[in-house]
């Protein structure tokens, strides 16, 4: 078999004096679409930062495409969770283009090849028209589409998307998940995508990576999202309820361990 896209072995990542990920091991094969799930503070963002080389692991090893993780890896496309809008008057095109060879010194000049690359990335997500408008006039979901285009700029083989579905309505969530899926298929990309609701990802995901209490569990939906597996992961009674083709993960006492966006117009999580 070829080298795995992501291989994490006995990794411990400490944040603010507390081990967020503890002795975590998992392997993601190439071309796989992985939904990274877990409650707030479970360590999804921390895991991505560790894979980007921004949060060094205390112990253990993390490899991407067979090479140890390092900062500024062009093979990794990243969509951060924090999406503050700076320079709202600038066009979406300018924002996307700013990432092009963004770490190279010099004037922010794209050149013909650069402009073509930006246009191609925007075309891949059908955002050419959006990109002409000033950022501040776009909705959150439209801006997210531009950010998705931006992750494609360096032709990455691995996408780390931190909650790309946040603040989208249920229909848009599904649409975005399908869009990412088809992009990944056509470009042979491996995708790790964190989310709070498993349902928009059903049928799209190949694997689930479930994070809780510093531990991680990787497997197919049928393997991981079960009452037994999640109860063992949480160390407390967790029930998986399937109703009307949807999945709900419910913690003891009625609170949901994952927060599903089940009802249209329901609450959203930042």
């Amino acid at each position: 078999m070829s080298t795995p896209a992501v291989q994490v072995l006995h990794a411990t990542v400490v944040r603010g004096g507390q081990a967020v990920l503890q002795d975590v091991s998992f392997t993601v094969p190439r071309g796989s679409f992985v939904g990274v799930l877990g409650a707030n503070g479970a360590g999804k963002t921390t895991l991505f930062q560790a894979l980007l080389g921004l949060a060094p692991a205390q112990s253990g090893t993390l490899h991407i495409n067979g090479a140890p993780v390092h900062c500024g890896n062009a093979a990794v496309g990243y969509m951060p969770q924090m999406r503050k809008v700076v320079g709202g008057q600038l066009s979406g095109w300018s924002m996307v283009a700013a990432a092009l060879k963004g770490r190279k010194w010099g004037l922010p000049w794209c050149g013909r090849a650069g402009r073509a690359a930006v246009d191609a990335a925007l075309a891949a997500v059908d955002a050419q028209d959006l990109a002409r408008k000033p950022l501040e006039t776009l909705s959150g979901g439209q801006r997210q589409r531009l950010l998705l285009a931006q992750t494609l700029l360096d032709d990455p083989s691995l996408l780390l998307l931190d909650e790309p579905l946040a603040s989208l309505d249920p229909a848009r969530m599904r649409e975005t998940a399908l869009r990412i899926h088809s992009l990944a298929q056509s470009r042979n990309m491996t995708v790790l995508m964190s989310a709070h609701d498993i349902n928009p990802l059903m049928g799209v995901m190949d694997h689930v990576l479930y994070l809780a209490r510093g531990k991680a569990l990787l497997g197919t939906v049928d393997e991981v999202i079960t009452t037994e597996a999640l109860t063992a992961l949480y160390g407390a009674q967790v029930d998986v309820v399937r109703a009307g083709g949807r999945v709900f993960v419910v913690a003891e006492g009625g609170g949901s361990a994952l927060q599903p966006h089940d009802c249209p117009g329901g609450h959203s999580h930042a």
Binding site: G72, P80, K101, G102, R103, W105, L107
Partner: peptide, 23 residues
Amino acid sequence: LAFMGRPLLFASLQPELAAAKGV
């Protein structure tokens, strides 16, 4: 300014992404 224009623009617009890209 001409020397650091590009990374400065990137870091100003999207600091988290710029950090991940090695700026």
